[in-house]
Computed example of a mutant assay.
Amino acid sequence: MWWRSAAQGAVAGAVGVAAMTAAEKAEQRLTGRPDSHVPARTLERLFGRAEYPHRQPRWLNLAMHAGQGVLLGTLRGVMAGAGLRGPWASAMFLAVRLTNDQTLENATGVGAPPWTWPRAELLVDLAHKGVYAFATGAVADALAARSGPGPGQVHARLRPGRVPDVGPPERRRR
């Protein structure tokens, strides 16, 4: 189950990256904001490559942008397979995506903590990562639903609402 869920999540992550990229390009046409070189510079530092400020190869930016999205999508697929589906799960996943980006960017010295950013830049980043998280979630949830409810959903259906006296459901024997 886990491997299938992770593979479905990788597909969902690729769709999420495509949706985020389309949203970014549309926003850039409207606002005139240039491409960010942060993904490429982060990848350069992670792999110890020589840095070329303002001249990062486009493929390097795309590799980091898409690579993170697909890799993190595997987690969203596992979440959906476990029964963590819908808008709440996608909101939780948004926090994961933001945390991943900020950890890598700050650990490499390429980025700064988001609370130090100009507010407009922060809102743009949150919006784009939100598009990614919810698009990835929608695809992961749809793919996971083909296998029926996840274990978490089965547990939640035992007794609706948060109650203290409901233990986990019996394990299915193989």
Rank of each mutant, 00 (worst) to 15 (best):
M1F: 05
W2L: 05
S5Y: 15
A6K: 13
Q8R: 10
Q8P: 03
V11S: 03
A12H: 02
G13I: 02
G13C: 06
V15E: 11
A19E: 07
M20Y: 02
E24Q: 05
Q28E: 13
R29G: 03
L30I: 07
L30S: 04
T31K: 02
P34A: 14
V38F: 08
P39M: 14
A40Y: 07
R41W: 11
R41C: 00
R41D: 14
T42F: 00
L43A: 07
L46V: 05
F47A: 04
Y52D: 15
Y52T: 14
P53R: 03
Q56Y: 07
Q56C: 09
P57Q: 13
R58G: 02
W59L: 08
L62H: 09
A63S: 12
H65D: 14
H65Y: 09
G67P: 11
G69I: 07
L72T: 01
T74P: 00
T74S: 01
T74N: 00
R76I: 01
G77I: 04
M79G: 00
A80R: 08
A82R: 03
G83Y: 14
G83A: 14
L84W: 14
L84Y: 04
G86K: 01
A91H: 15
F93Q: 04
V96F: 15
L98Y: 05
T99H: 13
N100K: 01
T103R: 04
T103V: 13
E105K: 06
W115T: 03
W115E: 14
T116M: 09
W117L: 00
P118C: 10
P118Y: 07
A120C: 02
L123N: 09
L126F: 12
A127N: 00
H128M: 12
K129N: 13
K129A: 15
G130D: 12
V131D: 04
V131Q: 03
G137D: 14
A138T: 08
A140W: 09
D141S: 14
A142S: 11
A142G: 05
A144M: 08
G148P: 06
G148K: 08
G148R: 13
P149W: 15
G152F: 13
Q153P: 00
V154M: 13
V154K: 14
A156H: 12
R157W: 00
L158N: 03
D165E: 04
R172Y: 06
R174Q: 08
